[in-house]
Each structure stands twice: as structure tokens, then as C-alpha cells.
């Protein structure tokens, strides 16, 4: 059984700090458009590895509640394990969870 299992998108992950609205972050991409680092709290966190990647499209019947996102569970060089996502409508990147 894989350690991080994505059932129906994101379920199964055990994280600790949760930002309800998501923390705004700046993500740095390489030439292929893959994330290589992100800036959070004025600090640059270089990605060590993308551990898992999944997409969600939920509550599509609700105009306000619809969410189309691409989630990434990543480890960083400085030792963070966190989940970030890109809103596929607004193209904004946000930090959803950090394991503490």
C-alpha cells in the first residue's frame, strides 16, 4: 500500500496545519512548467521532490463553491512536507497544509 494514497483525489493524507482559505504563495516553475520552488513567508523553499499530484473538480453545481484545483504533495530541501495547489480557474498557487 502506498504511503500516501489519494482516494478520490486527496483523501488519505494526514497533515497538520490547515489553511482554510489557502496561504498565497509564489511558485517558481522550470521551462516545462514544473514547480521547482515556492516562496512562503518571504522565504524560498526549494522542492526536493513532488511526492504526489492529483486534480479535483468538486461541487460543480455551485457557482461559489466549485473548486477546480491541482494539488501537489511536496517535500522541500529545508525539510518541509506540505501540500500546495493551483486554482485551475484563477491560476493562483496556494499552500493548503503543512505537516508539523
Amino acid at each position: 500500500m502506498p504511503a500516501i494514497r489519494c482516494r478520490n483525489g486527496a483523501a488519505g493524507l494526514s497533515m497538520s496545519r490547515l489553511w482554510l482559505e489557502g496561504e498565497a504563495i509564489t511558485v517558481h516553475l522550470d521551462e516545462q512548467g514544473r514547480p521547482t520552488a515556492f516562496t512562503w513567508c518571504k522565504r524560498l523553499h526549494r522542492l526536493l521532490q513532488v511526492q504526489q499530484r492529483w486534480q479535483v473538480d468538486v461541487d460543480w453545481w455551485s457557482t461559489a463553491g466549485r473548486a477546480r484545483r491541482e494539488y501537489l504533495a511536496v517535500t522541500t530541501v529545508d525539510g518541509l512536507f506540505c501540500v500546495i495547489y493551483q486554482d485551475l480557474v484563477s491560476r493562483e498557487w496556494r499552500l493548503a497544509k503543512v505537516y508539523d
Partner: peptide, 8 residues
């Protein structure tokens, strides 16, 4: 508990 979005 089974919502795909953690905040929901």
C-alpha cells in the same frame, strides 16, 4: 469527513 477538499 470524506470530502476531497480538506477545508470542507
Amino acid at each position: 469527513a470524506s470530502h476531497p477538499l480538506p477545508e470542507r
